[in-house]
Design a protein around this nucleic acid. Structure first.
Lengths: 208, 208, 208, 208
DNA sequence: TATGAATGAGTCTTCATTCAT
DNA sequence: TATGAATGAAGACTCATTCAT
């Protein structure tokens, strides 16, 4: 049964990593215990060590596994969008910490950022993921600019601004700040985005 | 009954909290140990428990102590600024994770956000602090609007946008993302801010 | 004020020892803490060490202080008793763990016995106190025998039997065994005592 | 899944509990440390927690384990006894704190009584055990009465008296009181017992 | 004489990891 | 491959004791 085993193994790994993420979101990165993940995943502690070698490796894998495939959900959100604005609007909407699923994903990001400052491997992934995400946004913005839908903005800069805006707003919304419900986050975010995309670029201010 | 005990005690507390923050930044919230803080602060573990009752209380105090007085540094940064724009520019500049001190403060915030999701008391402080900070920004923006220096924007909304922008950009800069050095962060942030403040408010888009 | 000081000191000591006994009864010998006694006595921990040198010395003193004066209450109980039997009956009655005060005293004895097995100094006091108590009983029994009120028993042996009976019954009654309420203890004890004192001494059984 | 785990586990538990009793007798209930028990039992501290959850649960188990099976040794002592008196005599003899084993068991009881006052679970066991023991004695006494060997005494009351006598005497003997060696305890105890069993029940005294 | 802040050794307990099965 | 009993290092916390005041 050699071919089957690989599949089985992959399923085990995925099962463990999912359990690990549940634990991370519930308890925080460092409060996660191997035993806790084992129970959540319905396996023994030995199995986890068997698959990942040690706890830290498993926890990193749990973060990376999720962090790296964020794009998938977004790509799905774009299906059927007609204009560049509509696409950006959908991405923003898909980012709102409105459902438990999305909120848990943001919590994972908050945890992730907290860890990245002290873990070089995570840092590399964070950087790569941010590059992917801003390039993805920049491409859409560039299309909108090219078609005349948006003003002639710098796609890379505007994408960076949009990404920061979403992250910054999502922090407060995820933390359940009553001043920034998901609906308000949407409004505030799209309002800013509109000004970034449609307004005449004002006279350049001094750079550093 | 030793004289001036209150003063001495306050100094001890401050000494311990400073040490705790050093440990948090270096190791992460949960990896901090009482022994570690004690050694950093040059006191015994017993002293820490004596002053704070338990580890968690001390760690919370360490976060709150810093998080709550952020405004002080900012107020200092404003001295001598002539225009509203100049004031905002200085605040942005003061926020750049350029020096070790500011970068450590941002690291503390990243850690803080990671913890807030699981700690109601921290959540309340996070919210209060965000309210203070955005109101502080809104007041400056309102002055600029009133004087005709800025367009007639909604101060509260624009302040929320600016705060999010700073937070979102600072995450990447603090994490040493090479695409967003402190200088680049400054440029990207001020560029967005200019568009938010000076451009004609475009026709209102659809709200939720 | 030299003469006053001695009095004051004695009062302090008594205050501390009373507090210590309260703590012992409530928590058990070893669970008593210096801080706990200090708070109960409304003094500082330093004061306790000042007076007794260390914790163990204080705890021993607390036990001895009480254990040694047990006789006082008993002597009072005898006032007005006409016959030897009446005297013994009153002593038994005074021994019943019926009031909180007497029950707490028995609890102290239970604790004391638990400690004596490992503390030579306490052992010596325990022995002396038992000798006093049985001699006290023996004297009354001898008087009753001499006057013809009781049979011609051996006072020392009968006193030992009575003391054991009281101790053994009091254990169960103090532990709130529902089969042995204070009233039942009284009945069972006096019933046995009557047989020991009034019946014809049966033919001597074999000694060891 | 290791074979016969149940058996192995039971042996481990017994090994730990025996070590715990050794420590209790040597040091006193509260002075026992997990580390000490672990070393005595030749296991790790982790193993103890693994089996019992926490220290208190283990200590209780150590007491209960012994306290509950006291009857076994006594039943063995009865083999070959012809008369009811002989049976009681053997029980008394088996109770003498003469050997280290029996003395240690009495020390355990002294410790146990000291703890029972503050532990409801232990209290329940103490009560149950006392009921068992007195019923066991009462049955023998009833047989002796029925056969005409003893006077027509109330078996329950006499059993309670005998049990108290044994407990009370054993305290002093266990505490090595020179006035009450095991041999003397035997004599004093059997002497009283004889009067309780053979003498004419005197006219009933006043009940409460 | 009396205080109580400070200490740090020692406690229980947790938990990642090992390893025999 | 998978288990989970066992380990023991490391953690938070307790508390008797010291000592400057």
């Amino acid at each position: 049964m050699p071919p089957r085993l690989g599949i089985h193994e992959a399923a085990r790994r995925a099962q463990i990593l999912r359990a690990a993420r549940t634990c991370i979101v519930a308890l925080g990165y460092e409060r996660v215990t191997v035993r806790g993940v084992a129970e959540t995943a319905n396996v023994s502690t030995g199995t986890i060590i068997h698959y990942f070698g040690d706890k830290d490796t498993m926890l990193e894998a749990a973060l990376l596994d999720k962090v790296q495939d964020t794009g998938i959900a977004f790509r799905a959100a774009l299906a059927g969008a007609q204009t560049a604005w509509e696409r950006l609007e959908r991405l923003v909407t898909a980012s709102l910490p409105e459902t438990d699923e999305v909120r848990d994903e943001w919590r994972l990001w908050l945890t992730f950022w907290g860890e990245v400052t002290r873990n070089e491997r995570l840092r590399a992934v964070s950087e790569r993921q941010h590059r992917r995400w801003t390039r993805f946004l920049a491409r859409i913005i560039a299309e909108g600019s090219a078609s005349g839908e948006f003003a002639a903005v710098d796609p890379a800069i505007t994408a960076t601004q949009l990404a920061a805006l979403i992250d910054g707003l999502a922090i407060q919304t995820t933390l359940q700040n009553p001043m920034l419900s998901p609906a308000q986050m949407r409004q505030v975010c799209l309002s800013a985005l509109q000004q970034l995309l449609y307004s005449h670029q004002p006279a350049q201010f001094m750079s550093t």
